[in-house]
Design a protein around this nucleic acid. Structure first.
Length: 908
RNA sequence: AGGCGCGUAGCUCAGUGGUAGAGCGCUACCUUGACACGGUAGAGGUCGGCAGUUCAAUCCUGCCCGCGCCUACCA
């Protein structure tokens, strides 16, 4: 009798129920996702499964969504970002946490204002014609009607946010938080107002923060202009890429160590065209190597020049209006656009012989990140946040791992930025946004900053007060998102339970815009970091690695592909491709590939359900499942490992590995091998065998569905409800835990051997073109007892999977058959007599090929073993492995040689 | 200019100091009572190049070539 118990054909025990006849399929032949997705979205919402329970007996797990712009439409980046978040929140919810995922949108100052302004333009209106109040009213109307469509799209993606807690960065509560923060920072001296040079968008008519400017490399020109000395004794030649700014020059700077100009320092030049004397100054920031070594200084229109101007107390002459047209300081150029002015000035300089040269020059032009208009550096009164003290604490928090940034490579970038951070310009000259809570007394000039509108000047008691017209940078309000959405500044139960949030998942491109600022604000106002982990995922690009954009026409629209392949397929694809620290290059055929996987799950379930009859009783507890047969022991051992690795992957944000691990197990272990092995067992007359197989098949399926649910929620929920014995929703079922009793290395090794044998025989069938319908008789020469037992025990499986008619055993001392194809493994030789097809040449060719490969391997291994250094220094484990390998190859080689010898005795 | 990342099968991507993997595509065979959105068996790779470290390098180090991205005040 064999060790294993699943050899059933001779078993005669009485059966209490008949094997399940193939039943009518309980589910359709292929997965129709459209209805299923709609059904569960509705059902989950009705059941309120994603609403935070506020159950304080459970550990808490919380996240806030990176609020998409209220003007936004779901793009593939959102799909990735929110799929990853949803995976985590679903995992934690199933794993017993009290979960909260706060959704919401961002009011997106400039972006939203632009949208509504475009609408107005179509009606022949403008915001200025409308006036501030009416305009804002209009934006709110727009928001009510068409804003936040993206949230509906996120719902369709399956995002299990707590939709009862949806917030908006401009809603009432958050506006209160914004005022509170502004006033407190002002009172602490961390907000100030002043005249500084800022980036100005001449189209949006507002200041921009440094990081809101995008630099595009461009081919441009650099010109050399001659500036005559006032005393008419010569010229100084300056190099510039922006000749039009000469109208605002107030000095020319040279390096104090520059011998060429040393004698001119302190002298005056006569600025051409404007005929204004300007001094030659010495400043060691001037690079002697670049250009002519002499730099024209325009404090009003260049960041460096502004600094230089401050150092040398130079006058500041602003030459542009807010639309970057030359103003009254530009003399005859007044009214011209900056580029028109450039052209005219060059012509005029050329005409009077002061244009020395024009050269090609590549430069980085800064553009507005919203409208791409070339920004103009400009001096104006703006509000700033003094970031140094805030940044220091935020830097320390990350260094001390109070917040962990992943992948860790971003820490360095973060550190770099936080160390060199500049003050944050927070005022914007637009209308849509949080109006700065500051008033100026028109009587005495006092600035009053307060949460509530003051009735009188705090200094002179005048009632003639005027509120600041600027609004705050949108990122100012989103910086408060992790605590403002939880009710701050009130001391709420939500804050107590869910702050700090557990994880923030976002795209790396807003690390500075958003993540760093949340850290600064969170630490300052909550005295604790806003999140424990920041996971930064990559950008989704097209298959060529290009950024997706409408103008390039390379956009993969998530909604379109969701319609086409199903939401689960899209989620699965994004997840499987989301390797840490690497951009995702997405091609549509990958989504198609994962749709096939969804279908595979569907059909595997279909098979299992077809083989479970009404009398089947599901297990209450998977741990009570005691496998007897190799196939069951094996699949449970593999499943146990899968549970562990999936948990480990999710705990470590290795979403891609979790997805791929599940894919591989389900398709290539469960479907390819287990279910194929189970098919005959489902039909077995042996009650116990049939029952255990059914239970195992169901158990593995159940656990796989639960492991997969966070990634592909729809199909798993649907199938779960068809499993016998399931109750409730898979969404709130327990996330599988490892079952130690299922560990079984022996079963894994035996199964490996079985797979090798079956594959060997199939390979041979294929090489000899044996039609799949033909059943073969095989002769087996086992070299040890273990393999013999394996063959006996797994006979039914071998017969089924290798399509055999009979298996006969021979003693290894007996001669091998002559007209036969062979599979020669380490401890078994298998022969298939080919009566009708005596293909000696083919068999010899195959043996030859195998022999060559083995010889090659043998040589490599031998080289290693002969290497004294290897034997002396390689770890023992490796040496033994290599030794074992050598022996195995040798054995196989010898058997192949023997067989070749046998064959060569045949007359050809 | 500095920083970061990438270069692995035809394409899109995983991966590892000790015998190279997946999906799609390709070839041959198969409509077998879950699935042709399928099955079986294959072909296809000096793991960008050159050095170095190591018993051993696709993996670690340096340089080079190619490609991205981010930061930067070269007028």
């Amino acid at each position: 009798m064999s060790l294993s118990t699943d050899l059933t054909t001779t078993d005669t025990q009485t059966n209490s129920s008949k094997p399940t006849a193939l039943q009518t399929a309980p589910i359709d032949k292929s997965y129709e996702f459209q209805e299923v997705e709609a059904k569960w979205l509705n059902d989950w919402a009705q059941a309120g499964l994603s609403i935070a329970t506020m159950d304080s007996t459970k550990p808490c797990f919380s996240m806030v969504i990176p609020p998409p712009n209220v003007t936004g439409v779901l793009h593939i980046g959102h799909a990735l970002n929110n799929t990853l978040q949803d995976i985590l929140i679903r995992y934690k919810r199933m794993d017993g946490y009290n979960t909260l995922w706060v959704p919401g949108t961002d009011h997106a100052g400039i972006a939203t204002q632009n949208v509504v302004e475009r609408q107005l333009a179509q009606e022949g209106l403008s915001r200025h014609k409308l006036g501030r109040e009416a305009f804002i009213q209009r934006v709110w109307e727009w928001k009510a009607k068409s804003g936040g469509r993206i949230l509906e799209q996120l719902k369709r993606l399956g995002c299990s946010c707590d939709w009862s807690r949806e917030r908006f960065t401009f809603d009432e509560g958050l506006s209160l938080a914004v005022k509170e923060v502004f006033v407190r920072l002002y009172e602490e001296g961390l907000i100030y107002k002043g005249d500084y040079i800022i980036n100005w968008c001449p189209r949006c008519h507002t200041a921009l923060a440094d990081i809101e400017v995008e630099h595009e490399p461009q081919e441009g020109c650099i010109w050399r202009l001659k500036y005559p000395l006032k005393d008419e004794t010569g010229y100084v030649v300056v190099a510039t890429t922006r000749p039009e700014t000469m109208l605002g020059d107030t000095a020319v700077a040279v390096n104090p160590n520059d011998a060429r100009y040393a004698h001119l320092i302190g002298k005056e030049l006569m600025l051409p065209l404007v005929n204004r004397p300007i001094p030659i100054i010495a400043d060691d920031t001037v690079d002697m190597e670049f250009g002519t070594g002499a730099v024209k200084i325009t404090p009003a229109h260049d960041f460096n020049d502004f600094e230089t101007g401050l150092r040398h107390n130079l006058p500041v002459i602003n030459i542009f209006d807010t639309s970057a047209h030359v103003n009254e300081n530009g003399g005859k150029y007044q009214g011209m656009d900056r580029y028109e002015a450039r052209k005219r000035i060059l012509e005029d300089m050329s005409a009077i012989g002061l244009l020395e040269a024009e050269e090609k020059h590549s430069l980085a032009i800064g553009g507005c990140y919203r409208c791409k208009t070339v920004v103009e550096p400009r001096i104006s009164k703006q509000w700033f946040v003094r970031t140094q003290p805030l940044a220091q604490k935020a830097l320390a928090a990350v260094r001390e791992k109070e917040t962990v940034i992943l992948p860790a490579s971003w820490e360095k970038t973060y550190e770099e930025w936080m160390t060199n951070i500049k003050d944050w310009c927070i005022s914007r000259q637009i209308w849509w946004g949080h109006r700065i809570p500051a008033w100026t007394c028109k009587t005495c000039g006092e600035t009053i900053v307060a949460k509530d509108t003051p009735t009188a000047c705090t200094k002179c008691n005048s009632t003639d007060l005027e509120q600041e017209t600027d609004v705050l940078d949108t990122w100012f309000s989103s910086a408060l998102w992790p605590f403002s959405t939880l009710g701050w500044p009130e001391k709420t139960r939500e804050l107590e339970m869910f702050y700090p949030t557990s994880v923030l998942i976002t795209s790396f491109d807003i690390l500075f815009f958003w993540v760093a600022r949340m850290l600064m604000m969170g630490i300052h106002f909550m005295e604790e970091v806003p999140f424990r982990y920041v996971y930064l995922h990559a950008l989704v690009r097209d298959s060529q690695g290009q950024k997706m954009s409408k103008s390039k026409g390379n956009v993969i629209d998530p909604l379109t592909v969701m319609e086409k392949y199903g939401t689960d397929a899209v989620r699965m694809t994004l997840t499987a491709l989301a390797a840490q620290g690497r951009d995702i290059k997405l091609a549509e055929d990958r989504i198609e590939g994962y749709r096939h996987f969804i279908n595979k799950i569907w059909n595997a379930t279909r098979l299992v359900l077809m083989n479970v009859n009404d009398s089947f009783e599901p297990l209450k507890d998977p741990e009570s499942l005691i496998p007897r047969a190799l196939k069951d022991k094996w699949i449970l051992a593999r499943l146990g490992k899968l549970i562990q690795s999936t948990r480990h992957n999710l705990d470590n944000f290795e979403f891609d590995e979790a997805a791929r691990g599940l894919y591989h197990f389900f398709w290539h272990e469960y479907c390819d091998w287990y279910l194929e092995l189970a098919k005959p067992a489902f039909q077995s007359l042996n009650d116990q065998e049939r029952r255990i197989t059914q239970q195992t098949a169901i158990t593995v399926l159940d656990i796989c569905l639960r492991l997969l649910h966070p990634i592909i929620p729809f199909v798993t929920e649907e199938l779960w409800h068809n499993l016998p014995g399931s109750s409730g929703h898979i969404m709130t079922a327990e996330f599988p835990r490892p079952v130690p009793a299922w560990q079984n290395e022996t079963a894994e090794a035996q199964m490996q051997e079985l797979i090798e044998i079956i594959t060997g025989i199939r390979n041979l069938r294929s090489e000899f073109n044996i039609h799949p319908g033909i059943r073969l008789k095989v002769q087996v020469f086992p070299h040890d007892d273990g393999i013999r037992e394996l063959f006996s025990a797994q006979k039914t499986h071998l017969l089924a999977l290798a399509k055999l008619e009979t298996i006969d055993f021979y003693d290894t001392s007996q001669p091998r058959p002559k007209n036969a194809a062979s599979v020669i493994l380490k401890d078994v030789e298998i022969f298939i007599p080919l009566k009708d097809v005596i293909d000696l040449a083919g068999e010899l060719k195959k043996l030859q090929k195998e022999e060559e490969k083995l010889l090659n391997d043998l040589q490599k291994t031998q080289a290693k073993l002969n290497n004294a250094d290897f034997m002396a220094r390689a770890p023992q484990e490796i040496r033994e492995k290599e030794q074992q390998r050598f022996t195995d190859i040798e054995t196989r080689l010898k058997r192949i040689k023997d067989h070749k010898a046998t064959l060569s005795t045949i007359e050809t």
